[in-house]
Design a protein around this nucleic acid. Structure first.
Length: 117
DNA sequence: TTGTTGACTCCCG
DNA sequence: CCGGGAGCCAACA
């Protein structure tokens, strides 16, 4: 019953939540021992300018997530998160545990460990 | 809805 | 190396 032309949902579902789910899908595909930049994830989603959005989506992940968030680093191959709660230390340890090597400047070689589908 | 913040990236001094 | 500013997008109060 809809006597009026009022459409049930004239607009598309919230794109924001959808964006985060897409981020998680991409990150889950990054193989063990490989890394991808925030901008790289955004580019695979078709939004090359949404690097910050990727970081924001990953920051919202719960601690018990199955999403390998630690495989996402900045465009220089460096860990971008703060270490106030040892987050950076944890991320680096997880990556090193997978064979990723960081040089003296704390930088991983994207040419060597970078991943692309 | 608006304003702020930040796990980004690019550009310039 | 360190700042500042701009553009971008999502999370949150």
């Amino acid at each position: 019953m809809s006597p009026q032309r009022t459409a049930p949902h004239p607009r598309a579902p919230r794109p924001t939540a959808d964006f985060s789910l897409r981020v998680y899908d991409v990150v889950r595909r990054i193989p063990r021992g490989r890394i991808l930049s925030y901008g790289g994830v955004a580019a695979l989603l078709g939004s090359p300018r949404a690097a910050r959005g990727v970081g924001s989506a990953l920051a919202a992940l719960p601690d018990d997530t199955d999403v390998p968030w630690w495989r996402v680093v900045n465009r220089n191959g460096r860990i971008s998160i703060s270490n106030l709660h040892h987050g950076a230390t944890l991320q680096r340890a997880l990556l090193e545990g997978e064979g990723v090597i960081f040089d003296a400047r704390g930088q991983a070689d994207l040419e060597r460990f970078g991943w692309e589908p």
